[in-house]
């Protein structure tokens, strides 16, 4: 009944200076997580840090459930020190997840930085379909680009750009997307965007989608206490009023988010 469970850490691999890939195995049967769902994961076992942290599903594999995360504070620093066999307390899967694709429509995926975590889950879900998604991926530098080989292994060739230009195109990911839309008018006729990334990226993506009249969804991130809709801590302002990122989201239509 409860979506609270314990899981054993299978692997906690360091990918870059700041990024880790953690695989865990639930110690009891849990609901099947889908792209855009997330888990609340305890950082420590004591009272400090107190609250669990939200992490979106990155990948479901034969060896367990994976999250991809960046060390940004105390909680994630503690998490980064977990070793195989350590036990984590987790709540989930939570959240609405990305909506199902409409029949026949084209898919554009947009990821910024560690926002690739849930976007990858959706890419993998859609990669086998007849209409393969086109994935745009931006990061600060080439060393911040994650899971490029993983993407290639599922048959997705990411279109890459970086702020520094040391890898891929130089400039924002929305610039590259704008160019693509201009060159492929028929593609964008029946097309939906799914995105996750920093607020600045999502804001300009919303503007771009509005300009081209494209539907789109973004997976958002907010500080959360409970993850289940009770604390009202993780709200986002939308055209339908304040909504809870954890329970009403984390995926929202781009045109409903008020930046």
């Amino acid at each position: 009944m409860s979506r609270l469970f314990e899981a054993s850490v299978k692997e906690n691999r360091r990918l870059t200076e700041k990024h880790y890939l953690l695989t865990f195995n639930p110690l009891k049967k849990i609901r099947r997580p889908g792209p855009g769902n997330f888990f609340m994961i305890s950082a420590g076992n004591g009272l400090d840090p107190l609250l669990k942290r939200p992490f979106s599903l990155h990948r479901r594999t034969g060896s367990g459930i994976r999250i991809l995360y960046r060390v940004t504070g105390r909680g994630t620093a503690i998490l980064s020190r977990k070793r195989p066999g350590d036990v984590l307390e987790i709540i989930g899967p939570l959240g609405n997840g990305f909506p199902a694709r409409r029949a026949g429509e084209n898919t554009i995926l947009v990821a910024g930085g560690v926002g690739i975590a849930p976007v990858f889950a959706l890419a993998e879900h859609l990669a086998a379909s007849a209409k393969k998604p086109v994935l745009f991926y931006g990061a600060k530098t080439g060393s911040d680009l994650l899971c490029i080989d993983e993407l290639k292994s599922i048959g997705i060739e990411p279109r890459i750009c970086t702020d520094t230009g040391d890898t891929g195109r130089k400039g924002p990911v929305t610039g590259m997307l704008r160019e693509f839309l201009g060159k492929n008018p028929s593609f964008s006729e029946d097309c939906c965007i799914y995105a996750c990334g920093p607020e600045s990226m999502l804001r300009s993506l919303s503007a771009l989608a509005g300009e081209y009249g494209l539907r789109g969804y973004a997976a958002l991130e907010q500080n959360m206490a409970c993850g289940i809709g009770a604390c009202l801590g993780c709200i986002v302002n939308t055209t339908r009023g304040y909504k809870r990122v954890c329970r009403d989201g984390p995926v929202f239509p781009l045109n409903e988010i008020i930046w």
Binding site: D48, L50, N223, M224, C231, G233
Partner: peptide, 13 residues
């Protein structure tokens, strides 16, 4: 927002 922040062994809302 932001409406909550964690502090040592507690949180502000």
């Amino acid at each position: 927002p932001p409406r909550i922040v964690e502090t040592p062994a507690g949180m502000l809302n």
